[in-house]
Computed example of a mutant assay.
Amino acid sequence: MSTILLIEQVLNGLQFGVMLFLMAAGLTLIFGVMGLINLAHGSLYMVGAFAAAAVAGVTGSFVLALAAALAAAALAGAVIEIAVIRRLYAAPHLDQVLATFALILIFSEGTRWLFGSFPLYLDIPDALSGPVTLPGGIEYPRYRLALIAIGIAVALGLWWLTARTRLGIRIRAGENDREMIAALGVDISRLYTLVFALGAALAGLAGALVGAIQSVQVGMGEPVLILAFVVIVIGGIGSIKGAFVGALLVGLTDTLGGLFLPALFRLFMAPDAATQTGAALASMAIYILMGLVLVWRPAGLFGTRAA
């Protein structure tokens, strides 16, 4: 195995991880602050991707496409929080699951009605197309490097928001004692709508960014949502730092597992059998990682309460 291949796969894992972080950060904010299980978060990812593809197709501008993805996902999040989610905060988790699953069906059929069943495609902007030469002569896609940089920038921005701003103080206080901050005059309903819209915007941004390297299609958010739940269980519910670290662990485990496990089994198995066995274990690697973390720390790496 060459060093160049290894470095490329590590970068692929980082890129996959930071995109998962954008999904998981919004999900962990919503669950941590509101205590809400939101299965429709993947649909907001899909909304961002379709909004970006539609606007890019009309205007040809990738920047406007990203802005449209953020706005569409945030608006959709605010609307469903006010219309549906607000009635579920005191409901049992089973009711939350059923209601947000219904939202998945509504978003999927609504998107199919608006855009059809065929996938859309979002072109990589010219400024970010093509490879860039890294130290050591490694050529890596410029757009994927930009995704890593954007993910890290968003992580730093979320840390600043939650740790250094008045809104962040309210978010953290709402997570710990919502009745107390309501007694101090904070409008809990407005805070919840804002947090939900922020989480939805992050999901929409992830959908738009990933939409340029894969097709944009109905149902694209559900597989990513499952991985986002794995991320927040590993990192700890309600922790932005945990979401970032957990996302990087999941991204690297998924990518490097597919590289190393088949090669490992080839040492003592026939090539075909080794490839099949290694690929099967690689697909389970992130769930094995989650199980090991929960055995060691049931609340997750940075969680303060059991998941």
Rank of each mutant, 00 (worst) to 15 (best):
M1D: 13
S2A: 14
I4K: 13
N12R: 05
M19H: 00
M23R: 05
T28M: 07
T28E: 08
G32P: 07
G32F: 08
I37E: 05
N38L: 09
A40S: 15
G42D: 00
V47C: 02
G48H: 02
F50C: 02
G57C: 05
V58K: 14
A67V: 15
L70T: 08
A71R: 07
A76Q: 02
G77I: 03
V79I: 15
A83K: 01
V84I: 15
I85G: 05
I85K: 05
R87Q: 14
R87S: 14
L88D: 11
V97G: 03
L98F: 13
T100Y: 07
E109A: 09
S129M: 03
P131E: 06
P135N: 13
E139M: 05
I152N: 01
L158Q: 08
I171R: 06
M180V: 13
M180F: 13
M180W: 02
G185H: 06
S189W: 01
Y192T: 14
Y192Q: 10
G204A: 08
A206N: 05
G207I: 02
A212M: 02
V218F: 07
V218L: 03
G219F: 06
M220N: 02
V224P: 00
L225Y: 02
A228E: 04
F229R: 08
I232M: 11
G236L: 09
I237V: 15
I237S: 08
T253H: 06
L256N: 10
L256H: 11
G257V: 08
G257I: 07
G258R: 15
L261C: 12
L267E: 13
L267N: 11
F268V: 11
T277I: 13
A279T: 14
A280F: 10
A280C: 00
L281K: 07
A282C: 07
S283L: 14
L289I: 06
L289E: 04
L289P: 05
L289D: 05
G291W: 01
V293M: 01
V295H: 03
P298G: 10
A299E: 11
F302P: 12
A307S: 15
